[in-house]
């Protein structure tokens, strides 16, 4: 209840008492604010939201919200999020983590979540570095990047998270950045509202190990909203074309939103259950199925 007698949820209602221990200036501070605002706009009470993460600086994020949270193991946020969604389909399920957690250690899980199209929103805080472990190359580090594990520059091409998920057929793909807080909160909100798997890549600067060009000022210089380009988010091929500029330009907004969202895994499960339940034995006779007659 607000001081003025209204009952709507406020961003503060999603903020936990735990103080973030990120480095001051970290981009993740604004990401968590964007999440609070998006959740307040959606208006579901915190106990109806489950927030799962892997390991990394950004994976601390569930603890900073009042939603149910699970700071799980490295790269395994998505399988756990899927389990939660299956066990309680009524929950709004969010998963979050860094680019290493999502595209290296947990890279194999994304494809399967996309093909199942479970109604989960996955927020990746992409800072192109392993910050928590003090600055090693991550899957999105650009080629030539000098780090403590690439003293003479990286020889590898970076993963393009946007193309990756678009190619697997994700129904909602967007990018945001702390350079545009309004846009970031709106994008997260839209992703959560999308009925199916939604992916938001957030360029979140690492102030300690990130390069100058990846800080807010540098990101602002290369950012452009997709709306200002006249991009039609229903056009998947145009989205893929724009996504190819990942790393050179920072396109903000919705790359792709399936105009006709297909049924989610949860919908299909319900449908299957309804179909099979007609001939299913009653609960008290389930064990009979395992007894030879």
């Amino acid at each position: 209840m607000s001081a003025t007698g209204t009952c709507e949820y406020q961003p503060k209602d999603y903020k936990s008492d735990l103080k973030p221990i990120w480095c001051p200036g970290c981009g993740d501070f604004s990401v968590v604010q964007g999440i609070y605002r998006a959740l307040a706009a959606i208006g579901r009470p915190p106990h109806e939201i489950a927030f799962v993460s892997g390991i990394g600086c950004s994976s601390r994020i569930p603890g900073y919200t009042t939603a149910y949270g699970f700071n799980s193991v490295h790269g395994r946020a998505l399988p756990i999020a899927q389990g939660i969604k299956m066990a309680n389909p009524e929950l709004t399920v969010l998963a979050a983590g860094g680019d290493g957690d999502g595209f290296s250690i947990g890279g194999g899980h994304i494809a399967h979540l996309i093909r199942r199209n479970m109604d989960i929103t996955y927020i990746v805080m992409d800072n192109q570095i392993y910050g928590l472990t003090k600055g090693q190359l991550s899957p999105t580090s650009q080629k030539g990047r000098v780090t403590c594990t690439s003293r003479f520059g990286s020889l590898e091409e970076p993963v393009n998270p946007l193309l990756y998920v678009l190619a697997y057929g994700a129904g909602f793909v967007a990018q945001a950045s702390p350079t545009d807080l309004v846009g970031m909160a709106a994008t997260i909100e839209e992703a959560i509202r999308y009925p199916g798997f939604a992916f938001v890549n957030i360029q979140s600067p690492c102030v300690t190990y990130g390069e100058e060009a990846q800080q807010i000022k540098g990101l602002k210089a290369i950012s452009e909203t997709l709306a200002s380009l006249g991009h039609n988010p229903a056009d998947r091929l145009a989205a893929m074309d724009l996504a190819q500029h990942y790393g050179e330009k920072l396109h903000l907004g919705v790359f792709y939103r399936n105009p006709e969202p297909p049924p989610t895994y949860g919908d299909l499960v319900k449908e299957r259950q309804a179909l099979l339940s007609k001939d299913a034995p009653p609960k008290e006779r389930i064990l009979d199925l395992f007894i030879k007659k």
């Binding site: 003025t4 209204t6 961003p11 503060k12 605002r37 307040a40 706009a41 309004v182």
Partner: peptide, 12 residues
């Protein structure tokens, strides 16, 4: 106590 019609999401 008139209800508030602006929200925190309006200002950043």
């Amino acid at each position: 106590d008139a209800p508030r019609s602006v929200t925190p999401a309006m200002i950043f």
